[in-house]
Simulated assay, not measured.
Amino acid sequence: MTAQKDKVSNNLPTTPKTDLVDVIRTLFRWKKVIVTACLLAGIGSAAIVLLLPVYYQANTVFFATSPDQATPELLFGDGALAPELYGNESDIDRMLTISESNELIDYLVDTFRLYEHYDIDEDSPKGQFYVRRHFLGLYDITKTKRDAIQLSIEDQDPELAATIARTARDKINQLGQSLIKSTQQRAIATFVNNVSSKEEQLAVLSDTLQALRKRYGIYNTEAQSESLTALASTTENKLNSTRAKLIAFQERGGRFRDSIGVYEIKAAGLEEEFSKLNLKLDRFNDGLSQVLLYTRQYQEANTSLSEDKEKLKQYQATYSSDIPAMIVVEDAARPQVKSRPFRTLIVLGAVFVTFLFTLIGILLFEAYSDVDWKAVYQGE
């Protein structure tokens, strides 16, 4: 039975194992090479990092404000909702877009003479491209997890880094305000045109209304209607009374001849007065509907004109106001500590990479040292 088990075990395939002790033995045999390579890497990288320029990073943090702050309807309490103080995602995206615009970058390049500062030839065909690329390598704008915007500038001069960061932030605020003010300008121009058009319309209505009043003699519809009606009624009553008296005197004979003449004259005068009053009433009634129509149109146009003038004043007041497009949380202070390079980490990283690749190279060399590479190259 034991012989059969030995036979079976001899027939099983054997799995090659990597002898860790042999690997360690090999590495210790090459330890001088490994140590020398690591020392050379450390010394070389230390010499190189000492030549790297030191950069300082200035940071400023701000929130985007809501455009509601510059909306006259909300600002003056005409809207149903209170204006929001902080901007939403769209407002943050707008500020980020402004922060990454070439207009801002070119402004900073010209303001701080960055062509000379970065030692870039301004007159070269690609000078603008190179200076923008160099600046963007030192410039960073990000949205924080609390929906604030952080602007960072790196430079070898810490004071210049802080100045550029503050200037960039102020320019972003200015560009954000200009976008809002351009919208306000268009609204103001629209209101100015509306006011001018309505003033012309109001002048036409006023002239037409004056012509109708003069034509029909209507100046106060309610007062004139009451007075003319009352006067016509009174005159008619007087006329009827005078006629009745005249008939009575005529029936009594010739002895009342003088009274009959007096009442005939009175009746004739009242008839003439009543006739003229009727003509006035007819003319008044003929023009009343037109006068009322144009009076109502004039009043509505005047009310609309007053509302537009008030809105125009509100927009002009808002346009003249300095409403910021951002709320500054952290000013760009002069950085006290460098942001890069991290010399220790660079040296340690170079030593570690050298150590790793040296180990790999030694193991590969030992594993394939007995290979005839010439024959392999010749395909044999």
Rank of each mutant, 00 (worst) to 15 (best):
D157E: 02
I153M: 10
Q156M: 10
L151M: 07
K145T: 09
N193S: 12
A148I: 02
F191G: 01
T167E: 14
T163N: 15
V195P: 05
D170F: 04
P158N: 06
S196R: 12
L136E: 10
V204N: 15
T167S: 13
R146M: 06
E199K: 13
S196D: 15
T142C: 08
I153P: 13
I164K: 12
R146A: 11
S178C: 08
G137H: 00
A165V: 11
Q156T: 15
T163D: 15
A165Q: 14
T183N: 15
T190V: 00
L136F: 07
E200K: 09
A187V: 06
S196N: 14
L160P: 05
T144P: 15
G176I: 01
V204R: 14
V204F: 12
R166C: 02
L175A: 07
I172H: 04
L138E: 10
L175E: 07
F191E: 03
A162W: 00
A203P: 01
A189M: 02
I164R: 13
T167G: 09
E154Q: 10
K198W: 06
V195G: 03
H134L: 04
T142F: 11
K181D: 15
T190Q: 02
Q150A: 13
N193H: 08
Q201C: 06
T163C: 07
Q150F: 09
A189G: 01
R133M: 11
L175F: 06
V204P: 13
A203C: 00
K171S: 08
R166V: 00
R186M: 05
S196A: 14
Q177D: 12
Q177A: 11
A168Q: 05
R169S: 14
E159M: 07
L179R: 10
G137M: 01
N173E: 07
T190S: 03
K181Q: 15
Q174R: 10
D157F: 00
S182C: 07
V195L: 02
V204C: 10
N194A: 05
N193T: 08
E200V: 01
I164M: 12
T163E: 15
A187Y: 02
R169T: 12
I164Y: 02
Q177T: 11
F191I: 00
E154P: 08
F135Y: 12
I188E: 09
I149L: 01
L138N: 11
Y139S: 13
L151Y: 05
D155P: 02
S206N: 12
L151D: 09
T163F: 07
F191Y: 03
G137W: 00
R186P: 04
Q184A: 04
Q201G: 10
I188S: 11
I141T: 09
D147R: 13
T163V: 04
A161C: 04
N194S: 08
V192N: 05
P158M: 03
L175R: 04
I153E: 11
V204M: 14
T144R: 15
D170K: 09
L175V: 01
E199F: 03
A187D: 11
A165E: 14
K198D: 06
S152A: 05
L160N: 03
S178W: 03
D155N: 08
A203D: 04
A187T: 08
Q201P: 08
L151S: 05
L160A: 02
A148T: 09
T190N: 04
T163A: 11
A203W: 00
S152F: 00
D147V: 01
S178T: 06
H134N: 13
A168W: 00
D140Y: 10
I141F: 10
T167V: 04
